[in-house]
């Protein structure tokens, strides 16, 4: 793999990290916490108490992440499969992200005009989305601390 590919992966990695951070901040902002606990009183953080702003940023983050995921998944199967290997913990992370994405997408569908999900199903989606988000954050943090990579470069 050439240097430009490695460089593009490096940029994508930082975009993904920034997007995931924005998704986590705005995701937890869907609960009424930031105003209660004065986060929105910090200069420059007033927007965290506006549910419409955090909701739209959350959606925008999801768009970026879905685009990146589709782009690199396609490239992985077309080009990188012989170069990189997804590790066991990488598969765990993929599972968590997949559940978060599917439950999130279903929540988006549920909030469309003329679409009705049962209360039980919405509660189930909310629970899944929150639990797997927390699991993802904890496991990603642990893997980072103990230096377990999600992907490994295969030996030439």
């Amino acid at each position: 793999m050439n240097n430009s590919t490695d460089k593009s992966l490096k940029y994508a990695r930082w975009i993904a990290i920034a997007t995931l951070a924005a998704l986590a901040i705005t995701g937890f902002g869907q609960m009424p916490l930031y105003k209660r606990y004065y986060v929105s009183s910090i200069p420059g953080f007033r927007w965290t108490a506006d549910y419409y702003i955090t909701h739209n940023i959350h959606y925008a983050g999801a768009i970026i992440l879905l685009t990146l995921t589709a782009y690199y998944t396609t490239r992985y199967f077309m080009q990188f499969r012989g170069v990189y290997r997804i590790t066991r913990q990488g598969f765990g992370i993929i599972l968590f992200l997949a559940v978060i994405a599917v439950s999130g997408i279903l929540k988006v569908i549920a909030s469309q005009k003329g679409v009705y999900f049962s209360l039980d199903f919405i509660f189930f989606l909310d629970l899944l989305h929150i639990i797997f988000s927390v699991l993802f954050l904890i496991s990603a943090g642990i893997f980072k601390i103990i230096k377990l990579p999600w992907v490994e470069r295969l030996e030439k």
């Binding site: 685009t67 589709a70 998944t73």
Partner: peptide, 15 residues
């Protein structure tokens, strides 16, 4: 939000 949710459908296809 509705506009962004439409973009969400296009996002994976664009990727």
């Amino acid at each position: 939000a509705d506009l962004l949710s439409k973009a969400m459908v296009i996002a994976p296809l664009a990727g």
